[in-house]
């Protein structure tokens, strides 16, 4: 059972963000979706947990059509999916421990000491031991991301969705977050879907990489395949060279 997006369309007013995007995330893999800023990566991710509903197409998680689920079934499904937000989205009024334990309170059936123990385990996994009583305002950007990751894994989800996990971080902290993404797969066996525009990070954490461009899937392959691709749009993106497309068009015209 996996995450499957079929022919996803989504518009906001006149802006057609997704125009038939399809993707399948295999069990146990970490798949990264690349794309320029504003290309609809976060929109795509929000469809998977039912925060947005598609105008057309469908999202299947473990065979269940997310857009058609009743609210209670949707909540059950969300418990299987951890979501790491771009800016962590920690609750300002709660301590780190309360943030991490919030999902467990909702699941229910845990005693307070069990929740405390699970929170401690999660914070240990992301190297944030001793930060239980701190508040989000007292954390650095990297620490917030790690606390957000701890909150996402507290309920032992089967899937982890990462929304630009390394954006705005220094190179060293980026590497730490990448290692944590790898650790989540190796130690917890979770299936990961990462969206980013950070190529270094994508190469480090991914089993496969897809590219979202103009609302559709432009590329899907392994990190080695994307390194060797001749697709001019993908090359322009991974080389960070906006002139690449223009130069290539000129070369093709001259050759013809």
């Amino acid at each position: 059972m996996t995450i499957q997006l079929d022919d996803l369309h989504k518009s906001f007013g006149q802006k057609h963000v997704l125009r038939g995007f399809s993707l399948e995330v295999r069990d146990g893999e970490t798949l990264t979706v690349l794309g320029p800023s504003g290309s609809g990566k976060s929109v795509m991710l929000k469809h998977i947990v039912g925060l947005l509903t598609p105008d057309r197409g469908q999202v299947l998680v473990d065979g269940q059509n997310v857009g058609e689920l009743e609210m209670n079934d949707l909540y059950d499904l969300r418990r299987k999916v951890g979501y790491v937000f771009q800016l962590a989205a920690l609750f300002d009024s709660l301590s780190v421990a309360d943030n991490v334990g919030l999902g467990l309170h909702r699941v229910g059936g845990f005693r307070e000491d069990q929740i405390r123990e699970r929170v401690r385990e999660c914070l240990h996994l992301v190297d944030l031991e001793g930060f239980e009583d701190r508040f989000p305002a007292e954390l650095s950007g990297g620490q917030k991301k790690r606390a957000g990751l701890a909150r996402a894994i507290a309920t032992k989800p089967k899937y982890l969705l990462y929304d630009e996990p390394t954006t705005g971080l220094d190179p060293l902290t980026k590497a730490v977050i990448d290692q944590l993404i790898l650790k989540m797969r190796q130690e917890l066996g979770v299936t990961g879907l990462v969206i980013t525009h950070d190529m270094e990070s994508a190469y480090r954490v991914s089993d496969r990489i897809a590219m979202l461009y103009e609302g559709r899937r432009r590329f899907l392959g392994t990190p080695d395949e994307i390194r060797g691709t001749e697709d001019p749009v993908v090359r322009a993106f991974i080389e960070g060279d906006p002139q690449y497309l223009e130069r290539r068009e000129t070369t093709v015209e001259e050759a013809s």
């Binding site: 609210m71 418990r79 800016l87 300002d92 919030l102 999902g103």
Partner: peptide, 18 residues
Amino acid sequence: GSMKVTEQIDALETLAYP
């Protein structure tokens, strides 16, 4: 409003809180 613009309300939903 602050919770809305910093995605904290989305985070609540992903944790299965109405």
